[in-house]
Structures are given as structure tokens and as C-alpha cells.
Design a protein around this nucleic acid. Sequence first.
DNA 1: TACTTTATACCGTCTGGACGGTAAACAATA
DNA 2: TATTGTTTACCGTCCAGACGGTATAAAGTA
Lengths: 188, 188
Amino acid sequence: MARRSDGLATRERVLVAAAALVARDGPLALTLDGAAEAAELSKGAVLYHFKTKDALIEALMRSVLDRFDAMTEAAALKDADRPGAFSRAYVKVAFDPRSNTREASSGLLAAITNNIALLKPAAERHATIQNRLENDGISPSVATLIRLAVDGLYFARAFGLAPPSTAKTAQLQKLLLQMISDDTDRKR
Amino acid sequence: MARRSDGLATRERVLVAAAALVARDGPLALTLDGAAEAAELSKGAVLYHFKTKDALIEALMRSVLDRFDAMTEAAALKDADRPGAFSRAYVKVAFDPRSNTREASSGLLAAITNNIALLKPAAERHATIQNRLENDGISPSVATLIRLAVDGLYFARAFGLAPPSTAKTAQLQKLLLQMISDDTDRKR
DNA sequence: TACTTTATACCGTCTGGACGGTAAACAATA
DNA sequence: TATTGTTTACCGTCCAGACGGTATAAAGTA
């Protein structure tokens, strides 16, 4: 068999294939064999790039988290240092269909189904986000509300628990952005 | 071996034991053998009351859903027919520590880790709740926000994703109730 | 005895992961 | 530049354990 000579791309390919697999067939379909087949590799090759299945899942989760973080930071920068800049960026990115895909929840779903301890990185991010929201010029209650509503939307989509329609989602985003504005005004 | 002569109680005991098992050791610990041991029964006995593991999980979920529904209906009745009665009841029950325990999420967690199709009953309830919130005298956006925030809180607790402290949770509840009041006033 | 409930023994399948091997790329050396 | 050794990337096979589920016996109850 031909060798690839670009290990990095292969590793990435496994992650993408695994995410697609979970998005399509659910987290239970994510086996080492399944991931290998989806990435058109052997199980041995998958295990070469990820020492254990847990390592694969962790990588899956981190890649999603990092991407989300990067998008949020970028959006926050555009908004300068106005109070509520991070909150607005968080809402915008979280509601962006590009960041809130089925693939985006693959890591989390896999972690839940395989080993809850793997949720730790996600828990840390959540704590960080909560902190940043609270120190963004909005009241703690509104900060918490925003965070939980975003999470709720995320899980509603991930689990198919009556996910709101596109229209309703847009309305909700508007409402949240409005709340942020009102809240920063009140504090000024 | 001694027989119980009250099959109903045994069945119930299995459900309680299974919920406790999931709450303590996570959804992966819920095996037929594990459930049997937790209920101090043999696997055969468990399979007598629940034909398949899926059936056990479904029963687990339904019992939680039914209990939640009953509590909400009861709370809504107390609030007469004022606009927002159901919304207030929903928020109150969802934030009640008695309804939002780790056991309460056991069915959902087990469904996720074992067979996502089992989430169907939960999805239906969510759709029903969304409908009732929307027809409760509050605006659709606020209805959606409440629903998602409650879900977010629920999952934050279930997965340990930076669950808000008791104090913060109380503040949030207050904020939501306030929003319901404001919104029904505006509509009047 | 007939029925219900519980226990025991067992089977087939799936899955994570270990392992030995292979071939290409690269480095060292002569 | 030819040769030799070393690393990287990947494959195919095998295995032990876990788990869901079945079959059947046994015990209790009416």
C-alpha cells in the first residue's frame, strides 16, 4: 500500500471523517473500525495517529472547541471594546449555522456516549465563557441566561429535541442581542 | 428464592435502582447486569419486567417525563388562568431542586448513550411544551428563550458543564419570571 | 396444578486494542 | 552515487472481555 508522507493531513482526515460519521450515524457508530473505514484507512492506521479511542474523541472535541473559540475571538475584535462586545460575539457565533452544525456536536456526543470524563475540556471552556460573559459589562443574570440559552439551542439541535425553526432562531438571536444592549445601557 | 408477590413494586424498584446507578456511575454503567445488581435481582428478573434494554431505558425516561409533567400541571393550576400561568409553572418546576436532580436526567443520558431513537418521547414533550409556552400569553421569542434556558440548565447539570451555583440559579429564575410578567403586561 | 416471578447457565457478537509485519522516505556513510 | 540503517506511516490479524439476549430450571403463590 502506498504511504502518504503527510501524516498531518491524514490525522486531520480521520477527524473530519469521524465527525461526519457521528453526524450521520450517531455517536454509537463511532468505533475504531468505523472511523477507519470512514477515513479509508485501516484500524491500525487510526490507532497510529490516536493512541486510544479516548484520544481520538478528545481530539475531536478540542478541534471543535478551538474553532468556536477562534470564531468568537475574531467576532469580538470587530466589535472593539464596547461593553457587551464578547457577549454579542458569543451570541452571533453560536447562532451562526456554520458553527452550529451536526459535526460541531460530534465530539461532545462521542464523549458522552463513551466516557463522560472526556467532557472535562468542554466543562472548562464553559466556565471560561461564563466568566468572560460576566465581565463584559452585562449583569450576571443576563450572562447566565445567554450562556444557558445558547447551550439549550445547541443541545436541542444535537439531540433533535424540538429544535427551533430558522425563523424562530433568528427572532431569539435578536431578542438576546437586544437584551445585551438594554443591559449595558442600564449599567452605564 | 423468595418471590415478591407485588410485581409492580419490583418493576419500580428496578427503575429507581437504574436511575440511581446512572446518577452515580454514569450512563455507561447501565448494563442489564448492572441494573440487576443494583436492584438486587438477577438479570433474568430484570428481563422479565423489561423485555429489552431499550424498553428499560424508555420506561426510565417516561417515568421522569411524567413526573415532571404532573408537577408542572399542578403548579399551573395553582396559578389560575392568568396569562403566563403555564410559563411560570414551567420555570418554577424546572428550577426546583426536587425535579432537577441527577436521577432526573438518567433516562435521557441512557437514551443518548444507547440509542438516540429512544429520545423520541422526550422530543415530543419538548414540542408540546414549546407549544404551550407559545400559547400562554407571552411572545414566541420569550417562549423559546425560556424553553432553551431551562434545557441549558438541565444539560449543564447533567453533563457538569459549569452548572450555575444555587445563588446564580435563583437569580436567573427571578429574571425569567420577571420577563414573563413584563411580557404579559406588554401584551395586555 | 397452573401461573407468575426469579435464578442460572450459556451463546453470539461486537469492540478496543495489541502486535507483527511491510513499504516508502529519509539519513548516514562509504 | 550506491549501500545500509532508521524512522514514519500504515496494514491485517488476532484475542480477551463485555454485553445483550435466550433457554430453561426452579421457586413461590393461588
